[in-house]
Computed example of a mutant assay.
Amino acid sequence: MKNSIDVHTHTIASGHAYTTLLENAKEAANKGIKVLGVSDHGPNMPGGPHLFYFGNLRVIPRELYGVKILRGCEANIIDFQGNIDIPERIQNNLDYIIASLHDVCIEPGTVEEHTNAYLKVMDNPNVMIIGHPGNPSFPMDNEAFVKKAKEKDIIIEINSSSFKGARKGCEDTCYNIARLCKEHSVKIIFGSDAHTCFQIGEFKEAEELIKDLNMPEELIMNSDEHKFVNYLREKGKNM
């Protein structure tokens, strides 16, 4: 299976990433990526961009170097009620939102609180992906989480960066979540979480994690360049 999209990528606008959107797009083209999503951190991330940045993403061309560009955000879940740091008026104008818990934006709580944060954020119709849910800083009820994703048709990310030291100790939880996704027929997506252009499209660790699960290809959103775009259109997004 050739992975043709990567929608969890960061630019220098995120504050702790190191390449520009143009550099990311060029590298994506070199690697045969057909769809590239720019998903810089929401403004509550230390060093993150102002809200104006997300409001002005409309000026970015829809194609760069032959790569389709999607305008997104990795929003921060900021409380255990599932609120995020992007106002609704801006959410509505983005192609997609990845919602993630980061311990620099919210202090970890209880399993019940983490579970509630994830369940509540999935009620937001502009949230399409849950980012790196295997984070050991935020343990939760994995089955309740996956069942809610099924109910709301939310995509669960398998984040390659997590296995490279970003979230030490996440492997067992990520595997368990992936297994539950297969069991409940929940869509997954590999994310590079690239903070330089050189990481774009690099999913080896995520692929290794699920290789013995025999995950049906129809559940893997990276497997076809049109699959994720069609999913967004079904959610009412036009691009």
Score class of each variant (00 low, 15 high):
N214Y: 12
F203N: 03
E202F: 07
A28T: 01
G66V: 02
K204Y: 04
Y65D: 08
H102C: 11
K150P: 09
N24C: 13
G15K: 05
S160Q: 05
E208T: 11
D193N: 13
F145A: 04
I77K: 02
N124P: 13
K31Y: 06
K120W: 07
G201F: 04
I33A: 05
S4T: 14
R167V: 00
K26M: 14
V104G: 03
D141A: 10
Y175G: 05
A29Q: 09
L64H: 06
E205F: 04
E151F: 11
F145S: 04
I200G: 04
K227D: 04
V146F: 08
E218R: 10
E205T: 02
G32C: 00
T20D: 07
H195C: 07
K164F: 07
G236E: 07
M239D: 11
T110C: 12
L51C: 02
N92D: 15
E208W: 07
F228H: 08
E88P: 08
G109D: 06
K34A: 12
N159S: 07
K2S: 03
L209C: 09
M221S: 00
V59S: 08
A17S: 15
A206T: 01
S160N: 15
M221E: 03
G236W: 10
P125E: 15
I5A: 05
G131K: 03
N230E: 15
K211M: 06
T11N: 11
D85C: 08
P139N: 08
Y231V: 01
P216Y: 01
V35D: 06
F80V: 03
S4Q: 12
K31A: 06
N159R: 04
T196H: 12
I33L: 07
A25W: 10
K182C: 03
E107C: 05
E74V: 08
K147I: 13
G66N: 01
R62V: 02
I86M: 05
A117N: 09
L119T: 10
T9Q: 04
K120Y: 11
H8N: 05
I155V: 14
L94V: 12
G201D: 00
S161K: 13
L232K: 08
